[in-house]
């Protein structure tokens, strides 16, 4: 019994330490500067204030949240729209055997390529089609990572749909479009939602391309906005933690989904 309670104590202690940075973030966002510019350990604010959140509001934080939302939603929708038909084709339709292998290699190469490696040619692509420094341009380049990830995840879900259902419908004369709309899509809705959640998180958090392809501050997404705050001032922590907490709230609400996805093993590409 002693070993068991020691084990539980250890688990709680480690969990507490792992959560410390997040607790510190929330606490600091509510502290007046005099409290956090200090040389002692203190997590809880003595005189809580919403001043940092108000300062963010005055600094058009809503605009950055909106930019992040537009980019994440747009990129997710495009990845699903292009990814679902592709996943269906790869899972169901008779393709030359070699194409499967080619697809696997393509997913791997993309997954392995550091974002910076494609950045210079992508910069030129965006400039050529006039989408440099625009949110639609960012949505487009996010497909570099979103699309293969969407296809990879959806492939598994499409394969889980029993082929007998579709065969039965085909015998009754249902065409491909009808089968997709009435059988496949309804059955993989949970899979589509899970894929969408992962894609949204991926785009909501993305930094490198947002840094390189967006120059106008009013078009910044949350991560690039945070980066400017980080480098602007050494101890600008009140606003920094306030924005960090705001940006994390929607994502922390989704931890459960991420956890289940990861244990199923299909989310290896998230980061």
């Amino acid at each position: 019994m002693g070993a068991a309670s020691l084990r539980i104590g250890l688990i709680y202690a480690i969990t507490g330490v792992m959560l410390l940075p997040i607790v510190w973030m929330v606490g600091t966002s509510l502290k007046p500067p005099l409290e956090y510019v200090s040389t002692t350990v203190d997590l809880i604010p003595d005189a809580p204030t919403l001043a940092h959140y108000r300062a963010l509001w005055a600094d058009d934080i809503l605009g950055k949240v909106l930019n992040s939302l537009i980019v994440a939603t747009g990129a997710t929708l495009i990845a699903l729209a292009a990814g679902f038909p592709a996943a269906y084709a790869l899972a169901r339709l008779r393709l030359p055997r070699r194409l499967d292998g080619v697809f696997l290699i393509f997913v791997l190469v993309v997954k392995l390529s550091p974002p910076l490696v494609l950045a210079i040619p992508l910069y030129q692509v965006l400039r050529t089609i006039g989408l440099l420094d625009t949110l639609p341009g960012l949505i487009l380049v996010y497909q570099v990572y979103c699309l293969p990830f969407a296809i990879w995840m959806l492939l598994g879900f499409v394969r889980d749909v029993p082929i007998a259902y579709e065969d039965a419908a085909r015998i009754e004369g249902a065409g491909l479009a009808r089968r997709l709309a009435t059988i496949v899509l309804p059955l993989i809705t949970p899979g589509l939602v899970a894929t969408a959640v992962f894609l949204m998180i991926l785009c909501w958090n993305e930094f490198a391309y947002a840094l390189l392809f967006i120059q106008t501050p009013s078009k910044f997404t949350l991560p690039t906005y945070i980066a400017t705050l980080i480098t602007e001032d050494e101890t600008f922590w009140g606003q920094l933690t306030a924005i960090g907490f705001l940006a994390s709230l929607p994502i922390l609400a989704l931890v459960g989904i991420v956890q289940r996805g990861l244990t199923r093993g299909f989310a290896g590409g998230l980061k």
């Binding site: 480690i14 969990t15 792992m18 959560l19 940075p21 997040i22 510190w24 973030m25 998180i201 909501w204 958090n205 930094f207 949350l222 991560p223 690039t224 945070i226 980066a227 705050l229 980080i230 920094l240 933690t241 960090g244 940006a247 994390s248 994502i251 922390l252 989704l254 931890v255 459960g256 991420v258 956890q259 990861l262 980061k271």
Partner: peptide, 17 residues
Amino acid sequence: PSLVAPFVLSTMVVTAV
């Protein structure tokens, strides 16, 4: 889920902290 939480945070938020 508490142990998983740091993983879902944006790298920029993590870096800021």
